[in-house]
Design a protein around this nucleic acid. Structure first.
Lengths: 201, 201
DNA sequence: ATGAACTTAACGAACGTTCATTAAACATCG
DNA sequence: CGATGTTTAATGAACGTTCGTTAAGTTCAT
């Protein structure tokens, strides 16, 4: 065995391809671009992947792997519903702030992904933490549609992160407003106010 | 003059290029693709635009033109703060539902746009309605950061619309939850609850 | 007859991909 | 242990196609 504790060539390719795909998209990156990043010839890539699409799909799977576990865990830690929600929101914001490539890939996949890929992403990556968030939403806001509440919770974190590059040029912006910790804090301030008591409709 | 009340060739090109760019992105669309859509030769496009990037930028400008006016108007109609907020939210949801190409282009530009383009988009398209939303946010929730509140309001509408293709595969979804009217209603239900009284922090 | 709008033809570059080949790593066996 | 054959990973060259773009020629209303 060559790879032992170190990284295999295949994984090296994926890890170096991910930032390229994240920044430039599928059509914006050539096989030669990826090869150059790994410091090998483009032809060698075909020894590890059938074609460009297979490489891209493998890169996506690799980038999305294990991303949901932390979220599911965060929400699973015992505590009051608001405490658990707070843990989820903080973990989500912190995680996205730490991995801008993942944030970019997720947005790209939302626009470019076909039905099959979107279904896979939803079911393999997000179903588990979303389910946990769904039951939390039912506890916390039984009067509203749980799916909508769960998405709204994500929205209050994700939209700030996704729009950060543009918000810079909108009135009232300052550097603090881009920090994951602050975004989580703001989202929780609103959510706590929303779901303070038993949720009157 | 050939164009009279009808559409000019230049505008025809832009209008037919927009859906292509929205669906496939800059690198996913070739000059020949666009030409085929307008039923002319690719070389003819260069009679109207210097190069592909100029065509793309013109298409973006064309797609984003006048998009902000309705929003600014919606928020300007007299009424209680919550009524004005409701009008804004409904107009935003309705507008995005009616123009999926615009929704897609906006997301693409957020990821692909360089600093210059993002600044242009922010200042030329969104500054005006966002400013109005900002002052409304100050009225309605003086205890929170206005920029954050304004973005959060948009988030509660936009994130539902942007994630619609993927939410289909998440638990708790049903067709109703994708309708702009319903999204606006849900967003307002949360916002009304948030900002019902003078906004206790 | 001039200029705008468009065509046909072609350019070089870059694209994804295939091919034959090679060097190293591995397995098998006398 | 060392010679053997096999597998694996990578190379460099090349294929056919498509890309953005340019040049020259045609049509046609003014």
């Amino acid at each position: 065995m060559v790879t032992q504790g170190l990284i295999s060539t295949r994984e090296d390719i994926l890890e170096r391809a991910i930032p390229l795909f994240a920044r430039l998209g599928f059509h914006g990156v050539s096989m030669r671009d990826i090869a150059a990043e790994v410091e090998m010839q483009a032809a060698a890539l075909y020894h590890h992947f059938a074609d460009k699409e297979a490489l891209y799909l493998a890169a996506m799977a690799y980038a999305f792997k294990d991303k949901s576990v932390v979220l599911t865990q965060a929400i699973a830690i015992p505590g009051t519903p608001l405490e658990r929600l707070n843990r989820f929101v903080e973990t989500l914001a912190e995680g996205m702030g730490r991995d801008p490539d993942f944030l970019a890939l997720l947005q790209r996949e939302r626009i470019d992904g076909n039905e099959t890929r979107l279904k896979l992403l939803a079911e393999e990556v997000f179903a588990e933490p979303f389910d946990a968030l769904l039951t939390l939403a039912k506890e916390i806001a039984p009067a509203h549609d749980s799916h909508m509440v769960a998405i709204s919770i994500c929205a209050l974190v994700m939209y700030h992160m996704e729009t950060a590059p543009m918000r810079r040029f909108l009135p009232g912006w300052h550097t603090t407003l881009d920090q994951p910790k602050f975004i989580a804090k703001h989202a929780m301030a609103l959510l706590a106010q929303l779901f303070a008591d038993g949720d009157q409709k």
